[in-house]
Amino acid sequence: ATNIVSKVKWYNSTKNFGFIEQDNGGKDVFVHKSAVDAAGLHSLEEGQDVIFDLEEKQGKAYAVNLRIK
């Protein structure tokens, strides 16, 4: 899926990962520091509106092509 609009559930800049809620009630989506860095960001804030693409690797959903709404 591409261009999903949602909100950051939480992000831990010390552990370099977090999760984004899915508005459709699906499972929370993992977001890694590499996606945050690629977006030119230093961190994410809880409740922040984001747009991302969903990529599945080894049966897990990852946020990629992250951008701020």
Rank of each mutant, 00 (worst) to 15 (best):
A1M: 13
T2P: 07
T2F: 13
T2L: 13
T2E: 09
N3F: 07
N3Y: 08
I4T: 06
I4V: 11
V5Y: 12
V5R: 13
V5C: 13
V5N: 11
V5D: 06
S6H: 05
S6R: 07
S6V: 04
K7R: 13
K7L: 05
K7N: 04
K7Q: 06
K7Y: 06
K7C: 06
V8C: 03
V8K: 01
V8M: 03
V8P: 00
V8S: 01
K9E: 00
K9G: 02
K9M: 03
K9S: 04
K9F: 03
W10V: 01
W10T: 02
W10F: 10
W10K: 03
W10P: 00
W10E: 00
W10I: 02
Y11T: 00
Y11D: 01
Y11V: 02
Y11P: 00
N12G: 05
N12A: 07
N12K: 09
S13H: 12
S13F: 11
S13T: 12
S13W: 10
T14N: 12
T14H: 13
T14W: 12
K15T: 07
K15W: 12
K15F: 11
N16F: 09
N16K: 14
N16R: 15
N16H: 14
F17K: 01
F17I: 03
G18W: 04
G18Y: 03
G18Q: 01
G18F: 04
G18R: 01
F19L: 04
F19V: 04
F19W: 10
F19I: 04
F19R: 02
I20T: 01
I20G: 01
E21P: 04
Q22A: 15
Q22K: 12
Q22W: 15
D23I: 15
D23F: 15
D23A: 15
D23C: 15
D23E: 13
N24H: 12
N24T: 10
N24W: 11
N24I: 10
G25E: 08
G25S: 09
G25T: 08
G25Q: 09
G26I: 09
G26H: 10
K27E: 08
K27C: 10
K27D: 09
D28E: 07
D28Y: 05
D28F: 05
V29Q: 01
V29M: 04
V29Y: 12
V29S: 02
V29H: 08
V29W: 08
F30H: 02
F30N: 00
F30D: 00
F30I: 03
V31T: 02
V31I: 10
V31Y: 02
V31P: 01
H32E: 03
H32S: 07
H32D: 04
K33F: 09
K33L: 05
K33Y: 08
K33D: 02
S34W: 11
S34F: 11
S34P: 02
S34Y: 09
A35R: 04
A35Q: 10
A35Y: 06
V36W: 03
V36Y: 03
V36R: 01
V36F: 05
V36P: 00
D37Q: 14
D37A: 14
D37W: 15
D37C: 15
D37S: 13
D37G: 08
D37N: 14
D37K: 14
D37V: 15
A38I: 09
A38D: 08
A38F: 08
A38L: 10
A38P: 03
A39I: 08
A39L: 08
G40L: 06
G40E: 06
G40P: 01
L41Q: 06
L41P: 02
L41I: 10
L41S: 05
L41V: 09
L41D: 02
H42Q: 12
S43K: 12
S43Y: 13
S43H: 12
S43E: 11
S43W: 12
L44W: 02
L44H: 01
L44A: 00
L44Y: 00
E45P: 07
E45M: 13
E45G: 09
E45D: 10
E46Q: 14
E46P: 15
E46F: 10
E46A: 15
G47T: 03
G47K: 06
G47F: 05
G47M: 05
Q48I: 09
Q48E: 09
D49Q: 14
D49I: 15
D49Y: 15
D49W: 15
D49L: 15
D49A: 14
D49C: 15
V50A: 02
V50H: 01
V50D: 01
I51C: 10
I51Y: 07
I51N: 03
I51E: 09
I51K: 05
I51L: 09
F52Y: 12
F52T: 01
F52V: 04
D53K: 03
D53C: 04
D53P: 00
D53V: 04
L54G: 01
E55Y: 14
E55N: 08
E55W: 13
E55P: 00
E55C: 14
E55G: 06
E55L: 13
E55R: 11
E56Q: 12
E56D: 08
E56P: 04
E56I: 15
K57P: 03
K57I: 11
K57R: 13
K57G: 08
K57H: 12
K57E: 08
Q58F: 14
Q58Y: 14
G59S: 06
G59C: 07
G59F: 05
K60M: 10
K60N: 08
K60R: 13
K60C: 10
K60W: 11
K60G: 07
A61W: 15
A61L: 14
Y62G: 04
A63V: 06
A63S: 02
A63T: 02
V64E: 04
V64H: 05
V64S: 07
V64Q: 05
N65R: 09
N65W: 02
N65V: 03
N65Y: 04
N65M: 04
L66W: 00
L66N: 00
L66C: 03
R67I: 07
R67A: 05
R67S: 05
R67G: 03
I68E: 06
I68W: 07
K69Y: 14
K69D: 10
K69L: 15
